[in-house]
Design a protein around this nucleic acid. Structure first.
Lengths: 348, 348
DNA sequence: CTGAAAGCGCTTACAG
DNA sequence: CTGAAAGCGCTTACAG
């Protein structure tokens, strides 16, 4: 038989009314002091604060949310929590949220199906908190397209190019420029062209991301041939599979990968095929994941500050919900190419 | 001037009362149908359901939580969200929670300071949901020691050895046995002994974890000398630093690492020092992270099903809050040693 | 500066 | 099988 009642001695958490009684004021006054309202006499405030301390009172977040319609919380909508960039952004959001005493919820949306996305959005709206959407891929972009009105949201996007929904602040890093730089680096090494191994992007085609765009631009600027981008995935295994194909083609001497995990798989495939890196082919990645500097060969890659981006997302959101101020789009740390051992002069 | 009122035409979400009016019943009856209460006449139920569909009604999770004192949510308390094991466990929890339509919150606790841990616990309790604590390290273990009563909690622990707090279900993998196996594997290859590079553990000393215990047991069983465990960290950079030291000692021919990330750093350090793996020294890891099979040499490691463990945690918690049933400790998938290229016969 | 009233959207006994 | 009442713990106008 399930026990429902409280055991004697089990302390029900103190409510605002318990505090009021203890301090000899109305619960309304208690509400004022916990909300930092200015018009409370110092002596009154002191009494209330003493009662709060004594009873160990903590305001119920759920009651607060219901009554006020708002809550100190943020939910992050993402399609994934483990891939390096996503995990790092989540980490940045969490750190900033914790510092601001905001609760963080996470809702992952795996597809861009309307019902699934809508459900996630409605649940987020119901919390009375804010929303951060990681819009690097289809589910995220879809969510941005169907935001319920009144929901405070900031998004981490690939590019601020598309029309911002109802003036929501967007945060991004200049992936395109970074890809262009990485490609130029490879071209400057004497490679005739650079092949691109793509991660799934926010657009339908694997060649539609900002990274792909930057790569393509650099190639065109240099008058180099533009090979078809090859569709990769997220994981080393995907890179390995693609790498085996790439290894067969003696024409490929340089490959830029959409992330470091793919590059890692490519490295392995190349080695198995007997092609030396960087002697025969150069490989570069994106992210600068913690492992990348310790691979052999150490990976040339584009350092992206996802954690900083996460923090920026949160601080923008915080401004939005606290001050209600309109906040503009907001770029963060510029990506930086880190040249290590996996890229070198073109063969011959 | 902040706009407070609703714009004309902006739809306030339908409440239980709106539905009641539309269906010609009391809001109480609406409550019954949305909660699947049996005693509702089919015709009545149908009318209510039609009204729900028409108005697009969704029950407010926060009102539900306040009124009932319970909510369909789980908060996971962890010290980290990015290290492989933690991230994978979180992923498992999230997937299972999503399938059960539970919201998931995450609160990270970086230290085992009492105030910090207590705060996190109280916030979790306030949600009216359940708690999953990842207790592989000090913050988590500390949390288990100060659980508020009445909070449904399940923990992922290193070992079920310590006294379970108020009969909470614990989930674990047999890390000790796994470490023992890995160590035996190395010993069987002819190594005189095996060095252990530790991740931070739930106990004060780096040699206090279950992994360390299993390693030590295997050594003792074999009558091999037991070297002092070396304190590592979590990241490849930590493994690299430790690896440089290890590389100096010609006596070390086999090293077991507390996780794959450390092993990756050790691999690099060894190579830089001119020591061949596995020719001169064998290296094994723990986790079987996605990258490990694609390193060169491919890493011998212990495969741990963290995602499954996360799922198990959630399902236990689900049982706890839905059926109120007491649930016992619960082991999950046995770890499995995966032998690849980084371990081989002892030199000479 | 402070209090009495009403209400946020639901649930929980209690009647019928 | 269904409804009227009270209440979850807070906040929001409204008075004074």
């Amino acid at each position: 038989m399930p026990v429902t009642g409280h055991t004697r001695g089990a302390r029900r958490p103190a409510s605002i009314r318990d505090v009021a009684t203890a301090a000899g004021v109305s619960h309304q006054t208690v509400s004022r002091v916990i909300n930092g309202h200015p018009s409370v006499r110092p002596a009154t405030r002191a009494r209330v604060e003493a009662a709060i301390a004594e009873l160990g009172f903590r305001r119920s977040a759920t009651a607060h949310a219901l009554a006020s319609g708002r809550s100190r919380s943020v939910t992050v909508l993402t399609s994934n929590t483990t891939h390096y960039g996503y995990a790092a952004a989540l980490k940045g959001i969490e750190e900033a949220a914790r510092a601001a005493a905001f609760a963080v919820g996470i809702t992952v949306v795996e597809t861009d199906e309307e019902a699934e996305v809508r459900g996630a959005l409605e649940r987020a709206a119901d919390t009375g908190g804010g929303l951060i959407v990681i819009a690097y891929d289809r589910p995220g972009v879809r969510a941005l397209g169907m935001l319920p009105e009144g929901l405070p949201v900031v998004a981490a996007v690939e590019t601020p190019g598309e029309p911002p929904p109802q003036g929501s602040p967007w945060v991004w890093t200049d992936d395109r420029q970074a890809a262009r730089e990485a490609t130029r680096h490879l071209l400057a090494l004497g490679h005739r062209t650079v092949h691109y191994l793509a991660i799934p992007s926010s657009t339908r085609t694997s060649g539609g991301s900002q990274r792909a765009a930057g790569w393509r631009e650099a190639l065109r600027e240099a008058g180099a041939p533009v090979p078809e981008p090859v569709a990769g995935g997220w994981e080393p295994a995907d890179g390995y599979a693609a790498g085996r194909e790439l290894a067969r083609d003696p024409e490929v001497t340089a490959v830029l990968c959409g992330n470091d995990a793919l590059a890692l798989g490519v490295l392995r495939a190349l080695r198995e095929a007997g092609r030396d890196v960087p002697g025969d082919v150069s490989v570069a990645g994106f992210d600068d994941a913690p492992a990348s500097a310790f691979l052999t060969p150490a990976l040339t890659t584009v350092r992206l500050d996802f954690t900083g981006l996460g923090r920026a997302c949160f601080s923008l959101l915080h401004g939005l919900v606290e001050q209600g101020e309109p906040v503009g789009p907001h770029p963060v740390a510029v990506p930086r190419l880190v040249v290590r051992e996996s890229t070198g002069p073109a063969p011959r």
